[in-house]
Design a protein around this nucleic acid. Structure first.
Lengths: 156, 156
DNA sequence: GTAAGACCTCAAGTTCACTTGAGGTCAAGC
DNA sequence: GCTTGACCTCAAGTGAACTTGAGGTCTTAC
């Protein structure tokens, strides 16, 4: 592999994408991006990787885990460089997710004054207390989500 | 402390709030809630704790860390049981945060088709790539946020 | 030709919000 | 009186998404 066949070193990709080199190595270890190697063993990235990284970061902002991102990326063509149509197709899938998240927060906001403001803040009756499966992107780690278990009311 | 002066055992609080006993102990260790003790050393909770726990969980849904929740709770009166007015005052503070989050997601959605759809997905120009300080609630752990470092564009 | 800096690998550490487990105590019912 | 189940403490583990560090190699510029 010749050293500058329009390929980027990891530092360059890092600078251009705003993603740390360690993160890029990590993404590679996770199978999210791919790099060629120089004779000396250094990573050489095709320009395409910038779009891939951008995709990953935006997907994360929307609340996808890297696992989900990996699945999404798996839908890209394997044997040719993805076109912008390919990327558009992928990102269109975010739409419902975004809509859902927005709806969730709006509902939360609408309930906020009336619900806590009124002093009920109950666990059964209060709409604030029905996160359902909508806890995407809030915090990390194993966690029991509020669900059927929340079955009582605060007041006597 | 008499064993049933209208106080709740940890299991009861757990069942009523939907929060695991281990989490309640954890919250206590973090100074978020407080418990009296029985002669035998068991935790006895005042009814008020249910509202406190509810507050904590809702705050988390909005994206606050436990650290922030602690600060918020510090604003509650120390010497008397908080009234619903007190709680309302606290939760009103969530409003701007919620508004901001919603705005962020809406902007993201609005940009989505035009931005990725058009194939630009650039790092400098694309609105998708200006998370600023708005990464609240996305994932965990130390992480470099996209910022000034993201300073280039994908296309040549 | 050599010094500096960019890069390599691999293992271990970090944060958050908890959970799990070990080893033991307390309280209620029979 | 004894079993059972709820509870106790304290230390260590978990998962995601990385970062940090140690110890070493490559490449470039002078």
């Amino acid at each position: 592999m010749s050293p500058n066949d329009d390929l980027l070193a990891i530092g360059e990709v890092a600078a251009r994408s705003g993603v740390a080199p360690s993160a890029l190595r990590f993404y590679e270890s996770e199978g999210l991006i791919h790099a060629l190697r120089s004779d000396g063993g250094r990573r050489l990235y095709e320009r395409e990787v910038l779009r891939r990284v951008a995709f990953i970061r935006v997907a994360q902002r929307i609340g996808l885990s890297l696992d989900e991102v990996r699945s999404a990326l798996a839908a890209l063509p394997d044997q040719r460089t993805p076109t912008s149509k390919d990327w558009a197709r992928l990102s269109r899938q975010w739409r419902p997710r975004l809509d859902e998240q927005i709806g969730m927060l709006v509902a939360l906001r609408d309930q906020l004054t009336s619900c806590i403001g009124c002093g009920c803040l109950s666990l059964r009756a209060c709409a604030l207390y029905n996160p359902d499966d909508a806890a995407a992107g809030l915090g990390s780690g194993p966690r029991y989500l509020l669900g059927d278990a929340a079955s009582d009311v605060i007041g006597r």
